[in-house]
Design a protein around this nucleic acid. Sequence first.
DNA 1: TTGTATGCGTTATCAC
DNA 2: GTGATAACGCATACAA
Lengths: 330, 330
Amino acid sequence: MTIKDLARETGYSVGTVSRVLNNHPNVSEKARREITAAVERFGFERNENARILKQRHNEGILVLVKGRKNELFALILERLQQVFASTGYSLLMEYFDENDNEVRHAVRLCGEKKPQGLLFLGGNCANFQADFNKISIPAVLVTDDASKLEFPTLSSVTTDDTAAADCAVSYLIACGHRSIGIIGGDFQISDTSRMRLTGSLAAMKRSGIVGPAAYESGWYSYEDGYACMERMLRNGNEPTAIFAMSDVQAIGAIRALREAGKRVPEDVSVCGFDGLLISRYFLPRLTTICQSGEELAERSARLLLDMIEKHSPARHITVPFRLSKGESVK
Amino acid sequence: MTIKDLARETGYSVGTVSRVLNNHPNVSEKARREITAAVERFGFERNENARILKQRHNEGILVLVKGRKNELFALILERLQQVFASTGYSLLMEYFDENDNEVRHAVRLCGEKKPQGLLFLGGNCANFQADFNKISIPAVLVTDDASKLEFPTLSSVTTDDTAAADCAVSYLIACGHRSIGIIGGDFQISDTSRMRLTGSLAAMKRSGIVGPAAYESGWYSYEDGYACMERMLRNGNEPTAIFAMSDVQAIGAIRALREAGKRVPEDVSVCGFDGLLISRYFLPRLTTICQSGEELAERSARLLLDMIEKHSPARHITVPFRLSKGESVK
DNA sequence: TTGTATGCGTTATCAC
DNA sequence: GTGATAACGCATACAA
């Protein structure tokens, strides 16, 4: 069923059918009624491929989501939908694997979907460095800092990872801990992990602590958090506190501690990062840095809209974080 | 940059360029080399819209995913990618909201993407009832039973929800519990919840228990699990065990119990359903019914492939579940 | 081995 | 207000 069939069935021409479908003016009430009825009757669904192929601009924002199981991204996405619902822009979301090159995806999809703007949920600076020059429309990188790249059409919105990690570690120190182990990502690869490490070290330095009792790295996952903690214990490191760079790693670490006969927070304190839902339900309730998905989403949306509509220059902003004191630190 | 530009730049015709792009035979080595080089040089990315619009069949499987934050679906998806990687079929994944009509989406996307088969991750029987007749290619509904619909091209793969719930509740009874509260979904709406309720009741009946001490329903979420448990306690119901129809509800319920001064499992036992990763890391480790995402994925893939390639008739199968004994039941 | 021409389903620009 | 008709970028049957 195509608009051609629809035209034949209703006795009108494809032009009129198309106009009705797109709510254009200059269509008689009668035609509109009859064609709408036929659409309903035949269950016609218009072919977006052909539509987009033909259109020069699509009133849409393309959202590129890195990874399928990131709870923070899901939260941001949800808020994004709400925010854009009232703007007249549609949201087109594309997911891809963690280790895909998001900018290459973006280049292809820009040619195809002809969106007005781009929203990257997660991304790698190196990829932008290499291919972002092929993109000519406004874009915002969310949860990763793009200020050093200095592209005139690429903004970024992040939590201040350095300050947040500093805050978390400072809190641990304030609680009397001086032997602090860190579990994080590979800071050779992940910009985020590196910044969180920098913040952690700064906090330690200020208090005259020479460095972390141990640093173990892995993916942000339960399994790797567990494995990192195990490794740390096996190496004979028994810090009194752990700063994990993600809630999931914190939870994995707590399980490992528990299985080693240690209690949290009585024997070892653990602080996480992210403020995922589970952190509020976990026992013990996680002490963690809460990133505000809502705020990240809203600021990104505003930034992008300003760039599209007012041709505002690229900006790089950070949104506030919050230390949520749970039951996992003593 | 289009294949036309590419043709002009290389001095070949669009036909030859297209043939190179699609790895067709009958292209000279020289042309292939030159055109490939040009593709690289200009960073050409071909327009999938036009490609699919033109193609009669796309060697792809369309996966329709209901909801963005379902961990079981993420697991299934991952396995699906592995399985199809070796088959020559590509996997095209589309996400949509929980309350969208997945079959309507499918109808539209079939017209657009012209896939060989459909894989629904989650779905509602009523939607299939209404619109599936518009779909003519093989499809498999995963995690929901479609046997009663009797469409000749619609298979389904599920965990046997009735038996699994029966198993869970039987276990609670075997542990000595006779006052069992149930937290689940709205069984007026959700087929799955209804089947799990049926199984629960069957187990109780066999043991001479007249019915659940209480039944509270909500979405499968931490918040609603928490709220259900709170409601149950507020109503003066204090069962010695809770069967939650999802792990997330179980975790929410445990948090509510804890805040009411009750310990799990000492005062109240809790059994979940799903076997999510978090169930293994939660403290106490959740006793739960493990659904095998891997198995669900593999059986679905096989079923679909058989329908596509051997024109096998629709089948409705269940995959084994497993009661994972954690620390949350006593 | 290569080039040309046609059409996929739609929107948009013309005439009428 | 409506109906032809020309693109959009690509794949492909057919011609050369």
